Simulated scan of single mutants.
Amino acid sequence: MEECICQSCGMAMAALEHFGTNRDRSLNKDYCSYCYQNGEFTEESTSYSYLKPVNQVIDYIQTNLQEKVELTDLANIAHISHFHFHRIFKSVMNETVGEYIQRIRLERAAFKLQTTNLTLVQIAEQVGYQTQFALSKAFKKYFGIPPTSYRSMPTDLTTPVKRRECGISDIPCDIRKLDPFEVVYTQVISPYQYADAFTQAWDKLLGYVKKEGIPDENTGYFSFCRDVPSIISSPELQRFYVCISNSDHLKSTGSFGVQTIEGGVYAVFTVCGSYKQLPDAYTYIYRYWLFNSEYQIGDSMVFEKYLNSPDEVEEEKLITEVYIPVIKK
């Protein structure tokens, strides 16, 4: 029997009893029996009780990367014993907490090297290394070359292109100042392995929030990635999330987390048409627009907002806003 992966929690389903059930009691091969029963998602999922504390720890790491992160503090945030915390984090993330922190720090440093004019001292401070020498040593061990060589290396982030080479025509852009706002999110499981991974994640998220009386006409629909572009982060390590604005102040539970999208200045690009255009849109933004504007990318999270959905309009009428944090050069 071919092993399937639950699109809710990521658990392997190797036997029939592992599969969830539909309303007619037939087996559902997309979700496991813990996440999906009788055609509805359960309140908690797998590693269930474990997903919530791991989400809380990841949120903490992301917002405190420049600080010294103590493993005992993370275990306390998760309300799990130090010993079990390490085991649980590894089972959910497929990385130890130490490996995860180091990877995120070094990948963020790599992104800053190629998209900003910050000095190595400034970058080291922003990603949590005490000195530029400590960063340089760790960076060379991880990427195989020193930071200075990496900064000058031609990549999709450092090599500008002409507009006609972007694969997409001119994209409307305006600069907006945003206040911080809160979203409820769930992770997209195995986005590179399953073509409908994002659809499955949206179904799960909307099924959960509808139980709480939302969404409504004021609800915003978003997605974000905690990692940096695939030219730096390996695809299998990139983690994508779909989310909606948290107007009812829902709390973290099971595989559903709560994240604050940072306020600040964003360049907002309005992409009209199929989602298949988005890779070309990012090429336009990173390799054409940024090189020809008065801005460079800022330190907040890049995210997307969906103004309509494939259930409402034809593919060519879809509207997506891409939010890029920016600061003046």
Rank of each mutant, 00 (worst) to 15 (best):
Q130P: 04
L120V: 05
N218L: 10
M301C: 15
K210W: 08
G20T: 03
V313F: 03
Y323A: 04
P310C: 00
V326G: 05
G298T: 00
F181M: 07
A124I: 06
P53Y: 06
V97D: 02
D170S: 14
Y282R: 03
N94Q: 14
Q193Y: 10
K52W: 05
T119P: 10
H84V: 01
Y208W: 12
Y194L: 11
F139M: 06
N117Y: 09
F222E: 06
I101C: 01
S49P: 10
Q200K: 15
L74V: 00
S247E: 13
D24E: 09
T63L: 13
M301Y: 05
Q37I: 12
N55R: 10
E99I: 02
S252A: 15
G39W: 07
T320S: 12
L16I: 12
E236R: 13
I80Y: 01
Y142K: 04
C173A: 12
I145W: 07
F303N: 04
R25L: 15
W289F: 09
P215K: 04
K305P: 02
K211T: 12
G207F: 05
Q259K: 15
T46W: 09
S293I: 04
T219S: 12
E165Q: 13
I123E: 07
P154L: 10
R239F: 03
V54S: 02
V258C: 10
Y185V: 13
Q37N: 13
T72E: 14
V54G: 02
Q238I: 13
V121L: 11
G263M: 07
N55Y: 09
L307T: 00
W289E: 02
G264I: 05
Q130N: 11
Q238A: 07
L74G: 03
L206R: 01
L318C: 01
T119G: 12
K162H: 13
F222G: 01
C166A: 10
Q130D: 14
A14R: 12
S255A: 14
Y36F: 15
F89Q: 00
A197W: 05
R226K: 11
L178H: 06
G144I: 07
I123K: 05
G220M: 08
Q259P: 04
R226N: 15
Q238C: 11
E99N: 07
Q277T: 10
E70M: 13
E95G: 02
Y286F: 15
C35M: 07
D248R: 15
R103E: 13
Y295E: 02
L118F: 08
F269V: 03
G254T: 09
K251M: 14
R23W: 08
K211L: 14
V242I: 08
Q132N: 09
S26I: 06
H84E: 12
A267Y: 05
T63Y: 12
V302T: 10
E212T: 08
I168D: 00
Q277H: 06
D227W: 01
D248L: 15
D248E: 14
T320I: 06
D196L: 12
V209P: 00
V183K: 01
A78K: 01
Y221W: 08
Y288L: 00
G263S: 07
V258R: 01
S293R: 02
S149Y: 11
R23Y: 11
